[in-house]
Computed example of a mutant assay.
Amino acid sequence: MSSIRKRRGLTQQELAALSGVSASLIRKIEQDSRKDIRLETARKLAAALRVPTMDVISQDAAEQADEPPADLWAPVRCSARPR
C-alpha cells in the first residue's frame, strides 16, 4: 500500500485525513505489523487512493504468497483429466 500512496504523492497523515483511517493504523499496515485489515478499512483506504479495494487487500497477500495460485490447482486438474 505504501507504493500506491507514494505514487499518489500522499503522506501517511494526508491519507489518514482523506480516508478517515488513523495514521497509526496506516503505519502499522505499511510496516506489516497488522496483517488483518478489516474490509471496511480497506474500502476507505482504496477510495482515498482511488484504486480498487482488492489492490489494497491483495498487495499484502501477493507479497506473502509462497507459490502462484495456479500451482495450487495442479493436483485437481491432474485428477480431473480423462484417462
Rank of each mutant, 00 (worst) to 15 (best):
G20M: 06
P68R: 10
A62Y: 08
P82R: 13
D32W: 13
A48K: 06
Q31E: 13
A16H: 09
V56N: 01
D66W: 07
A80F: 08
S19N: 05
W73F: 14
L45C: 13
R7P: 01
W73M: 10
A80Y: 09
L39F: 12
A80T: 11
Q13A: 12
P69K: 02
S24C: 03
T53S: 11
M1F: 01
T11A: 05
P68E: 13
E30R: 04
M54Q: 03
E30H: 06
S33N: 02
Q12C: 02
L25S: 05
I29D: 04
E63F: 07
A62C: 06
C78V: 14
R7Q: 15
R5L: 05
S2Y: 09
R77C: 05
A70H: 12
R8N: 01
A65L: 11
A47S: 10
L15E: 01
A42Q: 02
R81A: 15
E30D: 00
R43N: 08
V21C: 05
A62R: 12
V56Q: 01
S33V: 15
A74H: 14
P69N: 04
R50W: 00
Q59H: 10
P68H: 10
L10Y: 06
Q31W: 08
E67W: 10
Q59L: 07
R77H: 11
G20S: 08
R34F: 01
A65R: 14
K28C: 02
K35G: 01
L15T: 13
S79H: 01
A74R: 15
E30P: 04
A70N: 09
T53V: 15
S79I: 13
R27Y: 09
C78D: 11
Q59S: 15
D60Q: 10
D36F: 00
R50K: 10
S22L: 08
E14I: 06
S24A: 12
S58A: 06
P52C: 04
I57P: 07
D36R: 09
L25I: 08
R83N: 10
M54A: 11
L25C: 00
V56M: 03
A70L: 11
A61K: 06
A61D: 02
K44P: 03
L10K: 03
A61M: 13
I4D: 02
R83F: 10
L45F: 10
E63D: 07
D32M: 09
V76N: 03
K44W: 03
D71Q: 13
D60Y: 13
I4F: 13
S58T: 08
A62E: 06
R83K: 12
E40I: 08
D36Y: 00
R81V: 14
S22V: 12
L39T: 14
E63L: 12
A70D: 11
C78Q: 13
R7G: 11
R50A: 14
M1Q: 05
A47H: 07
S58D: 02
A65D: 01
R38D: 00
K28S: 13
K44G: 05
S19T: 05
E63T: 05
R43I: 08
G9P: 00
R7V: 08
I26K: 04
D71S: 13
R83S: 14
P52G: 00
D32V: 12
R50M: 04
D36L: 04
R77E: 08
